[in-house]
């Protein structure tokens, strides 16, 4: 079991208890033929091209992107590309993410972060809440007139 971090704080992960499935990208094409998009989450590896995922955008309510180590920042660019290419479902970051990265994850387009109990114990809720992006003010937004990728 793990903890889901959202802007409102820590929550239980109810995706699977509510009947949702996590399916590895490589198995996606194979096992089940009839899928309900709103019960389907795809686990993608972090070295995949977004181009190759475009056909699946409407087939999954969630895409989960792994962070094998907090120092591996590929997930940030992947999330950004998915949003830029028009993916509108839920984006979840899973793995070794630290609270200091929560704001970056949100600005890049993630909706939520999945961490284990160990991390949740070591970095309690208030450390994550301190990283909720408060306003749309950043150098990048000021400079590039960027539209936020998701509602912050």
């Amino acid at each position: 079991m793990s903890v889901i971090v959202r802007d409102s704080g820590f929550e239980k992960d109810t995706w699977e208890t509510d009947g949702g499935l996590f399916i590895d990208l490589e198995k996606y094409g194979q096992d089940v033929t009839e899928r309900e998009p709103n019960k389907t989450a795809i686990d993608i590896p972090n070295d995949v091209t977004v181009e190759s995922l475009k056909g699946l955008f409407n087939s999954a309510a969630m895409i989960r992107i792994p962070f094998p180590s907090f120092a591996d920042g590929r997930g940030f660019s992947l999330a950004k590309q998915l949003r830029q290419q028009g993916y509108e479902g839920k984006l979840r970051a899973v793995g070794h993410i630290i609270s200091d990265q929560y704001g970056f994850a949100r600005v890049c387009g993630f909706d939520e972060v999945e961490i284990d109990f160990d991390m949740a114990g070591r970095q309690p809720e208030e450390q994550w809440l301190a990283r909720v992006p408060k306003q749309d003010l950043s150098y990048q937004n000021l400079l590039m007139g960027k539209r936020p990728l998701r509602n912050i």
Binding site: G73, K80, G103, F104, V107, C108, Q140
Partner: peptide
């Protein structure tokens, strides 16, 4: 200076 500002705390590029 423009690049300095752009790169400051850039959310995507802190873990290159």
């Amino acid at each position: 200076e423009l690049l300095r500002q752009w790169s400051m705390d850039h959310p995507e590029f802190q873990f290159l």
